[in-house]
Computed example of a mutant assay.
Amino acid sequence: MKSFFEFRKSQGLSEDTLASNKLYLHRFLCYLNSNNVSRILDINNKHILGFINGLGIFSKSTIHCTLSSLRNFLRYLFDRQHLDYDLTYLVPKSSYKKDVRIPTTYTKEEIERLLMSVDRSSPKGKRDVAMILLAARLGLRASDICGLKFEHIHWETNTIQFIQKKTKEKIELPLLVELGNAIIDYLKYGRPVSDLPYVFLRAQQPYDRLEEPTLHSIVSFYLKRAGINNVDQKKHGPHALRHSLAGILLEQKTPLPVISEVLGHTNSESTKTYLSIDLDSLRQCALDVPIIQSLHYKGGELQ
Rank of each mutant, 00 (worst) to 15 (best):
K93C: 08
V100R: 09
Y89T: 07
D84M: 06
K93H: 13
H82W: 14
L70A: 06
L114I: 08
L114Y: 07
Q81H: 11
L77D: 06
D86C: 06
D84H: 10
S121N: 11
Y96K: 01
E109K: 00
D119F: 13
N72M: 15
V118I: 15
H82D: 09
S94G: 06
V100F: 00
V118W: 11
R101T: 06
Y76G: 01
E110D: 10
D119C: 08
I102A: 02
T88V: 14
S122G: 07
T88M: 04
P92C: 12
D86Y: 09
R80S: 14
F73R: 02
F78G: 00
F73N: 04
T104C: 15
V91G: 06
K93L: 10
M116F: 13
L90M: 11
T104R: 04
M116A: 09
P103S: 07
S121G: 04
D99M: 05
D99N: 12
R80K: 14
R80M: 11
E110M: 10
R113D: 07
D86G: 01
Y96W: 12
R120Q: 10
L74Y: 10
K97F: 11
K93T: 14
L87M: 13
R80W: 03
D119W: 12
K97A: 07
S117N: 04
T107S: 15
L115Y: 13
R71A: 12
P92I: 15
N72K: 10
D84E: 13
Y89M: 02
D119T: 05
D84Y: 13
K97G: 00
T104N: 12
I102G: 00
V91A: 07
D86K: 06
S95T: 05
H82P: 00
R75H: 15
T107Q: 04
L115V: 09
V118G: 01
S94W: 08
P103C: 05
R80C: 07
E112D: 10
D119M: 12
H82T: 05
R80D: 11
S117W: 15
L74E: 09
Y106C: 13
P92W: 09
F73Q: 02
V100E: 15
S94A: 09
P92L: 14
R120F: 04
V118R: 03
F73E: 09
P92G: 09
E112Y: 06
E110V: 13
K97S: 11
P92N: 05
D99C: 01
R71S: 15
K98Q: 12
V100D: 14
R101I: 03
S121I: 09
L115N: 01
K98P: 02
N72V: 11
L90N: 06
L87V: 05
V91Q: 08
H82Q: 13
E109D: 15
L83R: 01
D86Q: 05
R71N: 13
K108A: 13
D79W: 03
R101E: 10
R120W: 01
L87N: 03
D79K: 15
L114C: 06
N72Q: 15
T88S: 12
F78I: 03
L90W: 05
L114T: 06
T88Y: 04
K93E: 14
L114V: 07
K93V: 11
K97N: 03
F73A: 03
R113Q: 11
L83W: 01
